[in-house]
Write a protein that binds this DNA or RNA. Sequence first.
RNA 1: GGCUCGUUGGUCAAGCGGUUAAGACGUCGCCCUCUCACGGCGAAAUCAGCGGUUCGAUUCCGCUACGAGCUGCCA
Length: 485
Amino acid sequence: MAKKIRTRYAPSPTGKMHVGNLRTALYEYLIAKHEGGDFILRIEDTDQERYVEGALDIIYRTLEEAGLKHDEGPDKDGGYGPYVQSERQNSGIYLEYAKMLIDKGEAYYCFCDKERLDSLKHVVAGKEISIYDKHCLHLSKEEIEEKLNAGVPYVIRQNNPTEGTTTFDDEIYGEITVSNEELDDMILIKSDGYPTYNFANVIDDHLMEITHVVRGNEYISSSPKYQRLYEAFGWEPPKYVHLPLITDENHKKLSKRCGHSSFEDLVEQGFLPEAIVNFIALLGWSPEDNTEIFNLEQLTKMFDYHHINKSPAVFDMVKLRWMNGEYIKAMDNERFYELAEPYLKKVVKRDVDTHKILDLVKTRIEVFPDIEALVDFFEELPDYDIAMYTHKKMKTNSENSLEVLKELLPILEKHDDYSVDSLHDLIMNYISEKGIKNGQGLWPVRTAVSGKQMTPGGAFEIMEILGKEESLRRIRVGIEKLSAS
RNA sequence: GGCUCGUUGGUCAAGCGGUUAAGACGUCGCCCUCUCACGGCGAAAUCAGCGGUUCGAUUCCGCUACGAGCUGCCA
């Protein structure tokens, strides 16, 4: 039997959760869960400078809202802890492993100061490039002892070969080989004693027995160095699954301010977590049977990471909106009312049946904030232009509209049952007796009662919600406006 | 600059040597209809370019172009 799959999501607590990171987390979750494996959360906080207060809460909250339950993590010990790198650091494990590498000649102390390092830099094509020259590799044992004892700050660097090639195998991209002269002697342990991501990630993945290392493909260039680390330790490398990038509409890495940078922002904009998860699942992957709308459970069943794409995907807000609309339409009414009510109440304060309005609006929105612009007229009749009464297709104009409203007013005044059905019978009866087309009679009424060109629902629905008094008031306003011209 | 990766309609994508090159979003048109939606039907629109390999290339190989990522004591 194959080894149980273990994947890990290893974010840095540096702020909001980017949709790219969320997709990585999602795929990690799916790869594990598809085969009954474990999904682990590990916090990579080795960069104390970038640490953001509260970022940890965001990570927990986002994962939970997205439904990505982890099996192990800082809050859930599975025997591989601690799960926070700064805590692991406290036990000195990273330095310990770095020293093992030094003993093997695979790493070395480096005492170079900033000035010397800066002197190694040169500018190419407007960018600062620097490749370490192995200067400190040639220090003698005595020199190293001396500097160490004198407390000279140091880092520990990986000692990479300068000849030959290094190859690693990616599940998506296949075999990738680079020439060893490209391998810079990257820093393993920083001068503050913390490991770099580059080092900690290899140590922790090994110690936590991660079977599939899933990450964005910005790490693909560094992977040969990680591969070298595994080889240096004599460890079996994990399966690598590098994921294609998610870009903005200009095919550039998602920027912080284009509105779709973080999960939190999207939720705030009125998107449903399920829809966001559904949507990002489809960025870089597609199921065999073409289904597009699915929940996490269905997705887990279908997901096969071998079908992941190699090419970058543009984050298309328009399609996300469509998908969100699909979720709203499919939502049961109770939940819809609960989520939509706050948006409705922002603009409609009058005493009306909010559920009736929301029923009208459910198939017409993609995102909750869309509600506001659709229902504002229920609160107050807009100061509309009477040109609105003229509609070519309905064959209406200000004259015949005025006529219809004037004739209908007394009929409506006498009528007391303002339910849709009753109003329907009443007005349709008037229309057929008068021998006009439906639109010719209904367009003026809907216009008068809403003051808008487009409305959710028709004349009957609007009047039912508005009630007799307000409906009549608005019709009188219409008559007044039309008479004045 | 170097290295690495990528390139099917505007976007997401299927395809894995022989297809009329799926499907979805968007766009446009028609139907339904008191408006707008919903729903239904339909249309336009794609294999980056050039060379190979092959009886046959969107599919395999090479080159070019374009794009992206990396090139931090960030991750």
